[in-house]
Write a protein that binds this DNA or RNA. Structure first.
Lengths: 193, 193
DNA sequence: CCTTATCTTGAATGTACATTCAAGATAAGG
DNA sequence: CCTTATCTTGAATGTACATTCAAGATAAGG
């Protein structure tokens, strides 16, 4: 007879950004109450515990990323130019100092791998889904004759996923835009030549 | 008039493995006393605090990796076959479930980036040194005619570094040896073709 | 307007942790 | 063998943290 007041998406996006900035362990409940403007009791009522908040934030992250992805790789258009745009967008994220420069999924799996099986499995599932989404695009590119069928779509997707994980990590050591753009070019050429 | 009893290298390697497994924050002093078989007082006397232990462990890690690297890429031999061996060695590390499957430097920079400037800078410096070591090898490969000089050694080193960071992260999501070997092949071909 | 189920509040709790320190142990110099 | 500087020991300390819970607030149904 009283309804929850907060905006779940807003709360989860705030939590998501905190986790991207500080990681899972280092993001304290106190910090989460600050960024969400919710009191501990409310957070625990809504999500159970810190792990519950984290898992819900991962879900929100994946939802948002999916939306961004399907908006860019819209059907009826050639794939490769969109891939270029996608790479450029990622470079931009890497350069701006914001939290979005990291991928919550890869950052988190690197952190919790070997510590929390449940979280690891959720992250692996999400990353595999991402790879499959990439493969779908390569499938389309091959079907439309944009790419030869010498390498399978899965093969290409795997390589691109690896490259993007590496690109984001590399950007932590070198934020020179030229160097990063060149790496994106190399990646593109390795896939499309 | 009494000399420290413990073996510094042994202690740091034990600490190093703990940090690789659990990360910086999640490796407790209690865990460090366990794996090093040293009491808190001794660790604090020797390294100041937890951060001091971590920085010393990073130094040990870099020393060990350097030794492994220079042993493999010995002078007087062609570079490219050694690069292949190096890639194979990394794949092996990724597949075995040990702590060595992660790179302490990239795992740590992903964890502490934005939290501790001093540690970040040490890690960045070490990763840049690694990239330079790779560039040196490509320099030699170009000079010996193993590679054309269409791309600079720095350029090739940057791409390989990115690829290896990505490969290790990708291996956390997919431990299939065939897939990883294929990725290593792709990486090699992107550099050498 | 009143009831009541549900939500919000924030102080209180217990635990895990990094760090300290005083007492005890030990090896080198004499 | 004795002295003493340094090392080792491990219990004690204070802090940061995740979580709980009882009291207060609020909105929907009647």
């Amino acid at each position: 007879m009283r309804v929850a007041e907060f905006d779940r998406e807003y709360v989860l996006r705030q939590a998501m950004h905190a986790f991207m900035q500080c990681g899972y362990v280092k993001t304290s409940m106190q910090k989460l109450t600050q960024v969400t403007a919710l009191h501990p009791g409310s957070l625990y009522a809504a999500f159970g515990n810190k792990k519950g908040i984290f898992l819900a934030a991962i879900e929100q992250y994946q939802t948002d990323r999916n939306q961004q992805f399907t908006a860019l790789f819209c059907e009826h258009k050639p794939v490769l130019p969109n891939l270029r745009l996608y790479l450029d967008a990622i470079i931009k994220e890497c350069i701006c100092g914001e939290a979005m420069k990291v991928c919550l999924l890869t950052k988190s799996i690197s952190e919790v791998e070997g510590q929390d099986l449940q979280i690891s499995q959720v992250l692996m599932a999400n990353l595999n889904a991402y790879e499959n989404a990439l493969a779908k695009q390569f499938d389309r590119a091959i079907a439309q004759g944009e790419l030869p069928d010498t390498r399978s779509a899965e093969h290409l997707a795997r390589f691109l996923a690896m490259g993007l994980y590496g690109l984001r990590t590399y950007a932590l050591t070198n934020r020179c835009e030229n160097d990063l753009s060149q790496l994106a070019d190399d990646l593109y050429n390795a896939l499309c030549n």
